[in-house]
Design a protein around this nucleic acid. Structure first.
Lengths: 328, 328
DNA sequence: CTGAAAGCGCTAACAT
DNA sequence: ATGTTAGCGCTTTCAG
């Protein structure tokens, strides 16, 4: 302890938080001594003593998906200067199909964070509610009844995507999605609806994971199979990229032979050589709204749940075009 | 407290760590009661009491760069089942040029992690040594004298990359790098050396950040300027992508008009439509080696420093070709 | 096998 | 403006 400065521990504590009640002189002396002694306050102990953690736990599904980096950036921006720090926990999409946030969220709970921001939490609502019982939860990109939810209108996004393909004249459009988790079905539902409204048969293919690799494998099967679609609407950009890859491997050109649309509009979608038509949900904004909600929740644990739905935007690039051999 | 089960707190503690000395029956009763009461052990308090954190702090420079996701995956894999958890802290490349790991590492220190794994730590060695004084440090992708270092032979990688371009017949090759930080100069040095050996003038351009955006801007200037190079060797894939983007904007084709080589061989480099020639440093392996080193350090704080250098591998794809108008 | 007591490094009243 | 005294929720000797 740096109580060798001649002052009490209280003063040191006050000095470090530059709380009022410490003369400028003393504070200076304390900080100076601390530096000299290599002393650093122990936040762990501080949080424990304070019985309330100025920490938000951020659960990210998959670091390999750039969307989560955007969400993180947004959260950080919102928390900047608030003195609240964030501890991250990342999921493992590849493990047992990526279901159940399990351990990851559990570890946040054990670390006694004051609030958890969960980005695209997987698994059934039940396990979430359980977590939410222990600590306030802010759900990003997924609406959960009774829980702070910051999300984008998935139905509108999927409708725009499907509509775009329909407008181009496509009739054999498949929707490539992942495991059937709650809270991830809106896009699929809207797709089915749009197809139905157009008098076309929907065709949904579920890959075992929401990843590039899984999508690539599933797409290879679809494209080699009978009745090849002329367009694929993928659940996210990573999966859309997997579709492109499979198409390329089979000698199919995008968009001449196959149109592909993604979801997220991550930066990779915008790259030269990719130019993927995608639905932009502004992950950064989602993240900062979630950060703000988390701060509010920390301040008032019992306030009404936030329910913030934003409108996504379809960004048309060159991965979509009219189907090959238009009826003639 | 779940001391309502009729046993003492000691027992509860033991039961949860399934330490020996608790009858199977009691343990079961305790766990059951805990579940019923929604009790969860507080790791914060536990770490504090134990005076030794079973936690590694992982510092990642930039979530937008997929390499860090790979490193993370490697670290996690190495830590799996060890009971050691990891808390992440991510840098902010975009802030004030991305220098100084500052706050991020500081926050790890304050959280009293048992060891810090720093992936591509930026800033001068001095600030690192300071951190290393407080807690053991494992440096990934950067060699630091006297500190556990797990890295790839950058000089060899850069030599291979430059050599490849030279072999193709290029003579005007620029190396695009970022701010001049210690520990990031090997690639540049090897490039200069290779050029020199070939009797060609080196030309190094430093962008203000190691990012896509910064590279794009810098590349635009280079490509529009006089004496346009026929090849660019970028410090990493993100930057190489920025170069491609700038080239495309100017109507230059890759590789016909401009060859581009990156570094890291992140997945994005392999994508259809990109196919970037790049140097693979196997970030996943680097990560898991770092995780193992961290574990060893936790077990024996005073063992000799690990110094593990691996050999990178040049992966040639279609972003490189002979220069336009070969001498004729 | 089980329990009592001390203490980890801090914060938060409550004095002085 | 500064010092005192209790804990925070756990782990850890050390005794029953």
């Amino acid at each position: 302890m740096a109580r060798e400065v001649g002052v009490s521990r209280t003063l040191v504590s006050f000095a470090f938080r530059n709380a009022p009640g410490v003369s400028e002189e003393t504070r200076h002396a304390i900080l100076e001594a601390a530096r000299r002694l290599g002393y650093r306050p122990n936040r762990i102990a501080a949080d424990l003593a304070r019985k309330r953690a100025a920490t938000v736990g951020l659960y990210l599904l998959d670091l390999h998906n750039e969307v989560y980096a955007d969400i993180f950036a947004g959260v950080r921006e919102a928390l900047e200067g608030s003195g609240v720090r964030v501890i991250l926990s990342v999921g493992d999409v590849r493990r047992r199909g990526g279901a159940e946030p399990g351990d990851e969220v559990e570890s946040l709970l054990e670390a006694r964070v004051g609030v958890i921001i969960a980005a695209t939490l997987t698994g059934p609502d039940a396990s979430l509610r359980e977590a939410a019982a222990a600590v306030p939860l802010v759900s990003v990109a997924r609406r959960i009844e009774g829980v702070d939810s910051i999300y984008s209108d998935d139905a509108a996004g999927a409708r725009a995507a499907t509509g775009h393909l329909l407008d181009l004249g496509h009739t054999r459009i498949v929707h490539l999605t992942g495991p059937r988790w709650e809270g991830h079905t809106e896009r699929q539902r809207a797709y089915r609806e749009a197809m139905h409204d157009a008098g076309l048969p929907p065709r949904v293919v579920a890959a075992p994971e929401f990843t590039f690799e899984a999508a690539q494998a599933a797409a290879a099967r679809i494209l080699e199979g009978p009745d090849r679609p002329t367009a694929v609407f993928a659940h996210n950009d990573q999966m859309a990229l997997g579709v492109r890859e499979a198409a390329e491997a089979l000698g199919l050109r995008v968009p001449e032979d196959l149109s592909v649309v993604g979801y997220d509009d991550s930066r990779i979608a915008r790259l030269a050589g990719i130019r993927l038509t995608s639905v932009d949900l502004d992950a950064h904004a989602l993240g900062s709204a979630a950060g703000a909600a988390a701060l509010a929740r920390l301040a008032d644990p019992s306030g009404p749940a936030v329910d913030r739905c934003s409108a996504p935007r379809l960004v048309v690039r060159t991965s979509t075009a009219p189907p090959p051999q238009p009826r003639r």
